[in-house]
Amino acid sequence: MSEIVKENLIEFVGNLTVFLSLFLPILYLRGFTKFSKAFKYFTAYLVLIGLVQLGSKLHKVFYEGEETIFFFFYFILFQFLSLSLFYKGLLKKKFITGVTIIAILLFAIQYILDPILYFRYNTLAAVFSHIILVFYSILYLYHSLSNKKTEFVLINSAILIYLLSSSLIFASGNLIYNLNIPISVSDTLVNINRFLYLGFQIIIIIEWWKNYSFFKSSIE
């Protein structure tokens, strides 16, 4: 594959993920009032992530060349909050609220002690929030073992796969930035993340198509 095709493909995937980030919330918002609490929280997740993506994209357009890394802070925060609520809706366990509050407090303390972190990759927060979410996800998988009817089985599996693999990408974010290596190499990680994220988004669409599309809801 020639270099130009490869670059085009990667750029296309990047743009596609941004487009899907904006498109998915619209898809899910259509059923917002019809479905369960977990569905509402997941829609909230999609909306928040969509907003972060949109903000980051607009920031790039209007303030060309400036840092957009602080959007990462909102990405991690919103993702952790909304997905924690999502799993609370699915698992109906009280301890999730406690864990979420404690984690948020710890992150707040971290930012108070080191405000510069806002303009860097907060690898610790990223990895810990991912691990907590992965834990919920495995718990939900276990929970779904004996239940015949379970919602969000696909998305839950996708969350597990995406978060577990991407946590290492986020963890190595600062390392890559500090290392004295060609940008093309560090780009590889970003690109892998893009592909993983695209896969995640495709699963979200499939889940919607299978269980929450308007064809389905009109039949039911």
Partner: peptide, 15 residues
């Protein structure tokens, strides 16, 4: 970087 890539691959496989 290679090690990181391999680790990501392994995590993907594991998940």
């Amino acid at each position: 970087v290679n090690i990181i890539l391999i680790a990501i691959g392994l995590l993907l496989l594991m998940s």
